[in-house]
Design a protein around this nucleic acid. Structure first.
Lengths: 220, 220
DNA sequence: GTCTATATTGCGATAGAC
DNA sequence: GTCTATCGCAATATAGAC
């Protein structure tokens, strides 16, 4: 059978949901690559096939298509962050931080994340809600997860930090340094796993040897 | 007296240089505020007065006007960085780093820098040279100045660092953390002097207590 | 002023779902 | 067969570069 029955409710030639998803997918690719202003409705429709009308009946307009796409993207981004949070189960501070940092670096250097980051910076002025959603689901979420981790170690006497929140922000800042800026600006390819891990080790060393309590010469 | 229309080279009322500078100034303001696509030639002309013809004869087109404006801006940015480099004359590591970091933070949080940063991220895909010029005059220059400073202290035995370059990048990364991202996205106002200095102290403490040689319990 | 690009809408035709 | 979403194409409107 060419068309195995759709388990869902109605239309099937290319079900309404399929069309919607295909539009979202094509729009993501183009918006992420070329930005909002340089992506035309025609270009999206050319990738998907069909009529421009489909976009307007499904989404309402270009702005709404863009918003829908960003909402869609934030879901997958959120899942990535959530999986990173689970990686911090190690007992040793250095091991925990390293795991966390590697996960963050992997997400940061993902080409999709890079493009999303760039798009957010470009368009947040036009759509303020965009920035809020992105910050809440991405950076703030990662920072507060890390802050909790740091606080636990601080309570256990392994770390000496004045503010877990700020320390977490600084730690993540170290991961997202000039190298990341260069990736963001497209003058350098995203770091591969080996290079990422090397930088993570550097960062963890700098960070930890400043916050490790020195009373107990334990872990080293 | 019927004003003889000077068809080409000579201009009288407003000197050619003045007009050029006024155009650049108006263009800077608009481009920085609204971005490339959302700034129209008409809007620039409206601010300056005169005819659209002026822009095309002076610059050639919108792209060229934009490029000229960016080149113009990078000069002042360069001066700011250069002034930061001079501030590192202190003898004590902590004092030197603090001075340097305060200067960097002041530049970073300058609304003009923020707008420039945002514009670079938005447009570097369209104009790759932009990113190179910006990186060379800004971030890379600051990082390498800091790296030299760090290396001096390392040579003197005050710091233990494996790579001065990378350490410098991480240090600056700590300064440009999530808080800066929020400023960049416009959801938070740039930090005032007091808040900046507080963060600088945090960053220097984290950084130094990890890189200070512990053999000699000297400086602390 | 001219011309191109592009967002947005109008509407008859069509092809599956029911 | 009817119904409805989609299609294809044309038309409108506006902005903005030149």
């Amino acid at each position: 059978m060419p068309t195995p029955k759709t388990t869902s409710l109605r239309r099937t030639r290319r079900s309404s949901d399929d069309l919607r998803n295909q539009i979202l997918s094509a729009a993501s690719e183009l918006f992420l690559r070329d930005g909002y202003a340089n992506t035309s409705i025609d270009a999206v429709i050319e990738k998907v096939g069909g009529s421009k009308r489909a976009i307007y009946s499904h989404f309402g307009g270009k702005d709404d298509l863009f918003a829908a796409m960003m909402a869609n993207l934030s879901e997958s981004a959120l899942q990535a962050i959530a999986s990173a949070e689970e990686k911090v189960a190690g007992d040793d501070v250095r091991v925990s931080l390293t795991k966390f940092a590697r996960a963050v670096m992997r997400i940061l250097m993902d080409p999709r994340t890079v493009a999303l980051y760039r798009l957010i910076v470009s368009e947040s002025a036009r759509m303020p809600d965009l920035a809020e959603v992105f910050l809440a689901n991405g950076p703030r979420r990662a920072a507060s997860a890390l802050a909790q981790l740091l606080q636990r170690y601080a309570d256990a006497g392994a770390l000496t930090i004045s503010s877990a929140e700020e320390a977490a922000e600084h730690f993540i800042g170290m991961l997202r340094d000039d190298v990341y800026l260069e990736v963001l600006l497209g003058v350098r390819a995203p770091l591969g796993e080996k290079a990422r891990n090397a930088r993570v080790t550097q960062v963890v060393d700098i960070f930890l040897d400043g916050t490790l309590a020195r009373r107990r010469p334990s872990v080293r």
